[in-house]
Design a protein around this nucleic acid. Structure first.
Lengths: 232, 232
DNA sequence: GACAGTACTCGCACAGTGTGCGAGTGGATT
DNA sequence: AATCCACTCGCACACTGTGCGAGTACTGTC
C-alpha cells in the first residue's frame, strides 16, 4: 500500500500573516479551480499554475505545503457551492432530492472533483457544513442514532457512485456522436446478447435525458426504501 | 477538459502471435496486479514492473500500447474475480445482496481498483460478463425495458459510492488508532455540534462492524425501494 | 538614516515519470 | 545463406513535484 501517514490542510495552523501581501491563499486556490475547470486534474501543474499567477512555481509552496493540500483546498471550494435546503421548508424527501440534484450538478460543473471524491479527506469547513446539514435533514425526518449517519452515507454514496461514471462518459465520449458510441459498446458487448438489448434501448433516447431518468429512478427508489425504514 | 479522444484495449486487434514467446500479455498483467496489490496505484511504474519481470521498461510496450491500456487490463482482471449468483437459485433479493457484498469484497481486496472506477472504460470481457449477469438478475426479478438498466446502475452506483471512500479511510487511517481518529475528526467538525454527535456514536463501535452495518443499511433500503418499484 | 528581522520569491537541481525511436538480437522460413 | 519478423531495450525528451538556499522588499526599532 502507498499509505502516506495521513495529513490534511485543515489539521494544521495556517501561516499567520493577516496582512494583505501580493498573493494570498484564496487567490491561489481560485486560480487552481479555474485551471482545473479548464484543463482537468491532469492539466494542473504547479508550474502552470504559477505561470498563470505570474509567479514562479515554487513560490506557491509558501502558502501551501504541497500539491495535495492545494487539491484539498480546491476540493472544499467545490463543496462550498452545494446548497443544502432546509427540511423545515420543504419536507425531508424534497430536501434530500434537491440536495442530491444539487450535488450532482456541482460535480458536473467541476468534473475534476470526481477524481478526488473518496481519495482526498473531506475535512474542510464546506464539506463539514454540508455533512452537518445532511445530518440535520435526516434527524428532522425522524431517524435516530446511527441510522442518521447511515442515511447520509447511503445518500452520498448513491450520488457519488452515479455521478463519477457519468463524468467519465461525458468527458471521454464527448466528441463522439451517439451512433458511434452505440457501435463501440455493441462491439464490446458482442458476446452478451442480454447486454446488447440494453445498449439499444438506452441509445434510443437523448443521452442527457436518459441519464437524468436513471438518476431519478435510483434516487426515488432509495427514498422509498429509506422512508420504509423510518416508518418501521 | 483533458479529454483524450477515447480508446480502449478492447476495441483494437491485439498482436497476432498465438505462439508462446518469452513474455506474454497475461504474465505482464498478472505481475501488474501483484505490484498494484502491494504498492498501490502510485507504486506502479513501467520501470518497476519491467524490473520485476526481468525486462526493460520499454519492452512492455510491445504487448501494451500504453500504461492506460495496462491498467484497463488489470482492472478487468479484478472484475473477473466477482462471482454473480444465479437468481434462479436464490431469488433476486438474495442474488443482488450477494453480488453487492461480492463486489465490495473484491474491491477491498484490490484497493487500487477504487481509483480506477469510473475513470477507466469498463468494456473488458469480465466487466461485460458481470454487467450481463446483473441485467439477467433484474430481468428475472420482473423489471422491464429501461428499468432493468436503471436497477443495475443504481446498484453499482451504491456499491461503488460506498466502497470508494471506505478504502480511502482504511488506507489513510490504517496506522492510527481509533482514539486518535476520533480526535482528528472532532477537531475538523468542531464548528458543527450536530456532526460531533455523529462522530461520537460512530466511534463507539468497532470500525469494521460499523462499516458493515452501514453498508447493509443502505443496501437493504435500496432493495426495499426497488421492490416497491417492481410491484407497482 | 541605520540596522535588524521577518515575509516572501524563485532559480536550480534532483529524482522520478511515460513513452517515441531506432538499433540490435535470435530464431524460423525460404 | 539470405531474408524476414517477433521481440528487446538503451537512450533521450519533455514533463512532474518539491527541497534548498540565496536573494529581495518591506516593516519596525533605535
Amino acid at each position: 500500500m502507498s499509505s502516506k501517514p495521513f495529513s490534511s490542510v485543515w489539521l494544521r495552523e495556517p501561516r499567520k500573516s493577516a496582512a494583505a501581501p501580493g498573493r494570498s491563499r484564496e487567490e491561489i486556490v481560485a486560480a487552481a479551480v479555474e485551471l482545473l475547470d479548464q484543463e482537468g486534474l491532469s492539466g494542473l501543474s504547479m508550474r502552470k499554475l504559477g505561470a498563470r499567477l505570474g509567479a514562479g512555481a515554487t513560490s506557491l509552496y509558501w502558502y501551501v505545503a504541497n500539491k495535495d493540500e492545494l487539491l484539498e483546498l480546491a476540493y472544499d471550494q467545490v463543496w462550498g457551492e452545494i446548497i443544502v435546503p432546509d427540511p423545515d421548508d420543504v419536507g425531508w424527501r424534497d430536501a434530500v432530492s434537491a440536495l442530491a440534484y444539487g450535488m450532482r450538478a456541482t460535480i458536473l460543473r467541476h468534473p475534476w472533483s470526481a477524481d478526488l471524491i473518496g481519495r482526498l479527506p473531506a475535512l474542510g469547513p464546506n464539506s463539514m457544513r454540508v455533512g452537518d446539514r445532511i445530518r440535520r435533514i435526516f434527524k428532522a425526518a425522524g431517524f435516530q442514532g446511527l441510522d442518521i449517519d447511515f442515511c447520509g452515507s447511503t445518500l452520498t454514496a448513491y450520488v457519488f457512485g452515479m455521478t463519477i461514471p457519468e463524468i467519465a462518459w461525458r468527458t471521454s465520449m464527448g466528441d463522439k456522436d451517439i451512433g458511434q458510441m452505440r457501435d463501440t459498446v455493441r462491439e464490446a458487448a458482442a458476446a452478451h446478447p442480454e447486454m446488447l438489448e440494453g445498449v439499444d434501448t438506452l441509445a434510443d433516447g437523448d443521452p442527457d435525458t436518459v441519464r437524468r431518468l436513471s438518476f431519478d429512478f435510483g434516487l426515488v427508489s432509495l427514498l422509498d426504501g429509506l422512508e420504509r425504514r423510518r416508518a418501521s
